[in-house]
Amino acid sequence: MFADYSWSELGSIFAMQGFAGLVLFSVFVLMALGLAIIFGQMGVINMAHGEFMILGAYVTYMCSNFFQSAAPALMPISFFVAMVLAFFASGALGMLVEMGLIRFLYKRPLDTLLATWGLSLILQQAYRTIFGAREVGVTLPEWMMGSLPLTDIIEIPINGLIVMAITLAITVAVAVVMFRSRFGAKVRAVVQNRQMAGAVGIDTEKVDRLTFGLGCGIAGVAGSAFTMIGSTGPSSGQLYIVDTFLVVVFGGATSLIGTVASAFTISQAQSTLEFFLSGSMAKVLTLLTVVGILMLRPQGLFVLKVRR
């Protein structure tokens, strides 16, 4: 499959596809981070994660519409306002869901899976009723559009760069929250030993709720970033949920570094293969490889040793 291209062309192809892969990687990381917190740290399967992401996307859409009609002058910063709002909207919904649904099911992980699937159906239909069945696109501020020419063949789109920058910032922020803050220490304590954490005075229920909210909030930000590279429809979230779960499981559910590493591997493999095979076969091949590796190494790439 490489024979038809010269070396320099191949180089450019790999560079361009590599960049497309980096953008996909960013979206995967953003989605998977939230899921890794909820699934890895709390052991809860949140099948509605994609819908929390779409909520963030719709918040961004409404926000950009609002700025366009009410305050066009502030348009350049609309995106960042939207992102913060998306975080809080998804986070708040997540905390409500935790209170009303998830907290009764911590002991029954398979049932959480079914209940959150039901939730995702309800949310999807709610989006469809409110925003319509058609996909919506967000108008980006002008400075986010266009692309930087790097060489004659290679061009780098600006929105892709911004998505990557946001991903980097959020990943660092999550790492700091989880490993350097008091809240993170509490979360990790509850994960490692719930009874002991409770015994030393940590309000484990509150920690659960905030952790779930944080994971959902990050999904909201992911949705917000997602609007820069694609349009949003009521069922867009479902398209990504299986990929994202595979990313988290492949990386080793309890390890944040593992999540990032596996998101990188999967997205790069998929986008490089996509150029040479048809899109669907690239995806089949990538997913099959991941499933194959998981069968050989069920614990994922990176394992955090936790005494249960």
Partner: peptide
């Protein structure tokens, strides 16, 4: 035989369902 069960099994069977659908459509 590798003692994968519960949630992991559910996710992987789901992924296989996704793979098969994409394959059939493709």
């Amino acid at each position: 035989t590798r003692r994968v069960g519960g949630v992991y099994f559910a996710i992987i069977t789901q992924a296989i369902a996704a793979i098969l659908t994409i394959l059939i459509i493709g």
